[in-house]
């Protein structure tokens, strides 16, 4: 158990180092760079054209579908990892193989469904 936490303690340490690094970089940058804001400079940049409207107008709900698909499949695959490490154990044999194909079958059905329903086609 201590070992377990130790491993992640090192990871945490690396993270701290990284944060320090970024902080130092920003601090150094602050010392080096000029600061001369003008209203024009602070406008959103749209290749020189004055911005009109807000960003959401162009947003398509369709993106949501991908998020949805992702959530379904990614969460499914979470179950894959613990299983992957033990499925070839001595006692299991063909059973886990059958399980695997059931699992893949479900994923495949989902994919097939999305595909047939035209989710994956971009008009």
């Amino acid at each position: 158990m201590p070992d377990y936490f130790h491993g992640y303690a090192v990871v945490g340490l690396v993270l701290v180092v990284g944060v320090l690094f970024v902080a130092c970089a920003f601090a150094a940058g602050r010392l080096l760079r000029p600061l001369a804001p003008t209203p024009e400079k602070l406008l959103p940049y749209e290749c020189g054209v004055d911005p009109v409207g807000e960003g959401w107008a162009q947003t398509q709900v369709r993106y949501y579908l991908y998020a949805f698909l992702y959530v379904i499949f990614a969460v499914d695959s979470v179950f894959l990892f613990p299983w992957a490490t033990i499925f070839a154990g001595d006692a299991f044999g063909g059973v886990t193989l059958a399980e695997m194909f059931a699992f893949l079958g479900f994923l495949a059905v989902g994919l097939l469904y999305a595909w047939k329903k035209g989710v994956l086609a971009w008009t």
């Binding site: 940049y45 749209e46 807000e54 960003g55 959401w56 993106y63 992702y70 990614a74 695959s77």
Partner: peptide
């Protein structure tokens, strides 16, 4: 960023990430 191109790019990024993460 409050910039529509930035937002669009971010959404494309997200969609792409989700598609390829799997």
């Amino acid at each position: 960023s409050a910039n529509k191109y930035a937002l669009l790019g971010a959404l494309r990024t997200a969609a792409q990430l989700m598609a390829y993460e799997l």
